[in-house]
């Protein structure tokens, strides 16, 4: 970004200004970036409203937006409680999957023997449909929190491991050689070079994992639960209460979106160097 300069006293202020826009500019940027998805969302809502208002579909099959919204506000306390349960299961599963996934990736990268042993097992665990083992988990672990968290972990674990392994292996080999000439031990090389270098990869895996964790928690609730949005949807389904069913679906998606945004925010906060570079790469068109 800094123009290549032969004068050695050019300050970096120019860089700083361009990288950190003022609040007004940032607000305009935010609107500029988000009006398209917002417009699409509004268009979908209007389409939904038109379909139901024109009675193209029976209202007991697809409730109107107004009806759905009314259910959400009427049963606010009920929905809120179950939303928290699902969010809690999701977060717990996501955090465990992240910790276990990162540790597994580190071990696999440092030991080829363990990688070769563990990889097929991981792949096998990944290809088993989680919906199919959820009942078994309920039998083993009961109706409480545990089976939901375990399903969330199982489903979120894989993208974390894969992205972390990729990240740890993507380190510039010359950087590792340089580190050897600096007399760095394996621990120093890991903490100062390998680990930070792998974080951009890890975060792309975490973004996938966090949305999958929501699915995992809900799948766990479907199989056997008396709490959570999965339970809400099953109840609503049994009662043919489609407005509540829709409300449950909407809230569930919102959990995923909010958690995704939070992970992205954490990424920007922790890896400003990565975010700024990526931003520069994307905005090359005029």
């Amino acid at each position: 970004m800094v123009s290549q300069s032969t004068a050695s006293s050019v300050p970096v202020a120019g860089v700083a200004e361009r990288d950190r826009p003022g609040p007004g500019e940032r607000f305009r940027d935010a609107i500029g970036r988000s009006w398209r998805p917002v417009a699409l969302l509004v268009a979908l809502l209007v389409a939904w409203w038109v379909i139901t208002a024109a009675k193209l579909v029976e209202t007991y099959l697809v409730p109107s937006p107004a009806k759905t919204l009314q259910v959400m506000s009427d049963k606010w306390g009920y929905i809120w409680h179950h939303t928290w349960v699902t969010t809690y299961e999701t977060l717990l599963g996501f955090v465990i999957a992240t910790i276990v996934g990162v540790l597994a990736a580190v071990i696999m990268v440092y030991s080829t023997a363990i990688e070769k042993t563990l990889y097929p097992v991981l792949l096998f665990a990944q290809v088993i449909p989680k919906v199919a083992i959820a009942p078994l988990l309920v039998v083993w672990l009961g109706f409480g929190l545990a089976p939901k968290v375990v399903v969330a972990v199982l489903i979120a674990f894989f993208p974390v491991v894969i992205s972390m392994v990729t990240g740890l292996k993507a380190v510039d080999p010359e950087m590792i050689q340089l580190s050897a000439t600096m007399g760095a031990g394996p621990l120093q090389t890991f903490s100062k070079i390998r680990f930070p270098a792998s974080l951009p990869h890890l975060f792309s895996g975490l973004k996938v994992a966090v949305t999958l964790a929501v699915t995992g928690a809900v799948v766990g609730e479907f199989v056997g639960a008396n709490e959570g949005l999965g339970y809400v949807i099953q109840q609503a389904n049994g009662n043919l209460d489609t407005p509540m069913l829709f409300a449950g679906l909407i809230v569930m998606s919102l959990i995923g979106v909010v958690l995704f945004v939070l992970v992205e925010f954490a990424e920007k906060l922790l890896l400003p160097w990565h975010a700024s570079r990526r931003g520069a790469a994307v905005t090359t068109t005029y």
């Binding site: 970004m1 123009s3 006293s9 050019v10 300050p11 860089v15 160097w273 700024s276 570079r277 520069a280």
Partner: peptide, 14 residues
């Protein structure tokens, strides 16, 4: 002759 560029990040440097 890096004076003034101490706090710049690699992607900001030529």
């Amino acid at each position: 002759g890096l004076t003034g560029f101490e706090d710049a990040y690699p992607h900001e440097l030529s």
